[in-house]
């Protein structure tokens, strides 16, 4: 499709709902995802992220509501959407019994490449993703990171306009995670829209231009990462002391100036507290210096998305594992 001809948003969702029996996995979601960039869907296990993506990828029919992908209805125009989107995730996988190369050739053939073209394309993808050395091994022998890269490569056999990445870095080591992030950034720079679900707040912060936070099948907040953090209201000031014996004294000084409680900090050399803004932070630091508390360093950071989530839901992010439905 010529993308100039179609100026609809990448995704428009209105009142989308899906029940499984009595459970409302997705409960009346409204969202618009513009073209280009990464849109993050953030939420804990069981929040409804996977169910939402499965509906948008035409794998699951909604119980109520509508959604359009590039202006095409996910129910009545499913086949058109399948030409435009790719899916990678915990559930859209590759065949473990086949080799990496065979998987990519298979998909190339299904997309309509000739046998020769499909082989060339598979070779290009394997080279590009650094998987060429493992290309003739069965996928079941791959490491988690290799496997995830192959999953993503399988989604790029034909370049999609929109790619769904469902928890692409869950269970990966930091190095592999970084590689996946690089791939996502490369995708975006080539004009593909990315819808990413994650339960890692850091990941959404790193990659996404806009984020929707969902919990129990509902959108509970939406905005840029900075807006979400601002909605929590305060920044956190962390002060590192040269001498841990001065921690009690430092706390006394700070407590006189700042009208909030200390956040718990197990580091004996550090105190952390919420402040209104940079002005207040600088006053705190000068007061400490005037009181002869030796400061080795300090940082003023926006609250992490963990703290955002806590502020929005009143509950810490659940960490129990389980299938996300």
């Amino acid at each position: 499709m010529n993308r100039m001809e179609n100026l609809n948003p990448a995704i428009e969702i209105s009142g989308l709902t899906r029940y499984f029996g009595d459970v409302r996995a997705v409960d009346g979601i409204d969202l618009t995802v513009e073209r280009g960039g990464v849109y993050g869907i953030l939420g804990p296990n069981g929040a409804g992220k996977t169910t939402l993506i499965r509906m948008l990828a035409t794998l699951l029919q909604p119980s109520a509501g509508t959604a359009k992908v590039f202006g095409h209805d996910i129910v009545s125009e499913a086949r058109t959407i399948r030409k435009l989107v790719s899916l990678t995730g915990q559930f859209a996988s590759v065949d473990e019994d086949l080799t990496g190369r065979e998987n990519l050739v298979l998909l190339g053939r299904l997309f309509g490449f000739s046998a020769r073209q499909a082989k060339i394309r598979a070779g290009d993808l394997l080279n590009g993703f650094g998987l060429i050395d493992a290309s003739r091994r069965q996928v079941k022998t791959y490491s988690g990171g290799m496997r995830r890269k192959l999953d993503i490569a399988a989604s790029l056999v034909v370049r999609p306009e929109l790619i769904f990445l469902d928890e692409p870095t869950t269970g990966l080591d930091p190095r592999s995670r970084n590689q996946v992030w690089d791939i996502v950034r490369a995708l975006v720079s080539e004009g593909t829209t990315v819808l990413l679900t994650t339960q890692y707040l850091d990941e959404a912060d790193q990659l996404a231009g806009s984020i929707a936070v969902i919990d129990h099948g509902k959108v509970i907040a939406e905005g840029t990462p900075a807006e979400l953090k601002r909605s929590v209201g305060t920044s956190i000031l962390r002060i590192h002391l040269k001498n841990k014996d001065q921690k009690v004294k430092a706390k006394e000084v700070v407590a006189l100036m700042v009208n909030s409680d200390f956040t718990e900090d197990t580091d004996p050399f550090r105190i952390s507290i919420h402040v209104e803004d940079a002005d207040e932070a600088s006053h705190v630091i000068s007061a400490l210096v005037n009181a002869s508390v030796e400061v080795s360093g300090f940082s003023l950071g926006q609250p992490s998305l963990d703290e955002v989530f806590l502020a929005l839901t009143g509950q810490p992010v659940k960490t129990e594992s389980g299938e996300d439905e």
């Binding site: 309509g112 000739s114 290009d124 080279n127 590009g128 080539e190």
Partner: peptide, 20 residues
């Protein structure tokens, strides 16, 4: 590891075949 440029070139050279 994977240099993003190699990924970019894969994406930009990708052609769309007629469907199987």
């Amino acid at each position: 590891g994977t240099p993003p440029n190699s990924i970019k070139s894969i994406l930009s050279t990708g052609t769309r075949p007629t469907q199987a």
